[in-house]
Design a protein around this nucleic acid. Structure first.
Length: 262
DNA sequence: CATCGATGTTGAG
DNA sequence: TCAACCTCGATGG
């Protein structure tokens, strides 16, 4: 159940432990019927873009999207324990084993299809942005839209990698009302949101935890203390003491503080 | 033990 | 707009 930082961590794991190696690819569950196409080939590299992970096997790509249920489990050998659950795809190289369970997408695609996905997806705050063009793509897209900013942040073609937790937390940190249309948000504010996304996602990659509170202390790792507003409906806002609200926006739960986020 | 819900997306209507 | 997809840990009785 990842947002972009988790997927980036998976890519890092594959680049560290599998890249450049002949990799066994199987489907213990049997539902990944194309596993044989990749079996015993070199896993060239892993690329994360938003919530999608692409494992390149020379000229072929395995596109993986965990969706809401999917999960990775990694093990180091020489002894591998049998993990619980239905394993869609299993990867083994040397002493490393990775099991993929419950993904929405696990499909082999070619280079053209890979390029199509790159084009379709919006800018990923975790990608290097030396000339600021990724930030520009986000700002210019959001500032033209009459869609609420709370929905724009969940749109993977606007910004890739933000999910329901970061959406709520970023808007709280920006003091921005989620219902405000994108074209009513100032350019300065949009740049601030992009910069905060970069900061938060990087910290998430580094720590493996979604830290969003003021001092980023890991002391706020316990579930009750972790977030500013996410899943805190009916509780006191940590800043103003008002009540945290909840509503459905595009059928996803949205959390915000009505007085901090006017 | 049964039920619920989740950091997500697609596609039918 | 909403059901369907798909898995399993958390929750409650």
């Amino acid at each position: 159940m990842p947002e972009g930082h988790t997927v980036a961590r998976s890519a890092n794991h594959f680049n560290k432990n599998f890249a450049g190696q002949i990799t066994l690819v199987t489907s213990p569950q049997g539902r990944f019927t194309d596993s044989a196409l990749l079996d015993k080939r070199e896993l060239s590299e892993a690329i994360s873009l938003g919530k999608q992970l692409f494992l390149r096997f020379q000229e072929d790509y395995l596109r993986i999207h965990l969706g809401i249920y999917g999960k990775w489990s990694h093990q180091s050998g020489p002894i591998f324990s049998e993990p619980v659950g239905q394993v869609r795809a299993r990867f083994i190289a040397g002493q490393q084993l990775s099991d993929l369970r419950g993904p929405t997408i696990c499909e082999v695609i070619d280079q053209d299809q890979f390029r199509a996905h790159l084009i379709r997806l919006g800018p990923d705050p975790l990608w290097p942005d030396f000339d600021g063009s990724l930030q520009d793509r986000f700002v210019s897209r959001a500032i033209k839209s009459s869609t609420p900013i709370g929905q724009l942040l969940m749109d993977q073609s606007v910004i890739a990698g933000i999910g329901n937790v970061y959406r709520a937390e970023i808007l709280f940190r920006a003091g921005l009302n989620p219902f405000l249309a994108g074209n009513k948000v100032s350019e300065t504010k949009l740049i601030e949101i992009w910069a905060d996304s970069v900061q938060l996602l990087r910290l998430g990659v580094e720590t493996g935890v979604m830290l969003t509170r003021e001092n980023f202390q890991k002391l706020s790792v316990s579930k009750e203390d972790r977030y500013q507003v996410y899943k805190r409906e009916g509780l006191e806002c940590r800043v103003c003491g008002g009540v945290v609200s909840i509503a459905l926006m595009a059928s996803r739960k949205l959390y915000w503080c009505g007085s901090c986020q006017k």
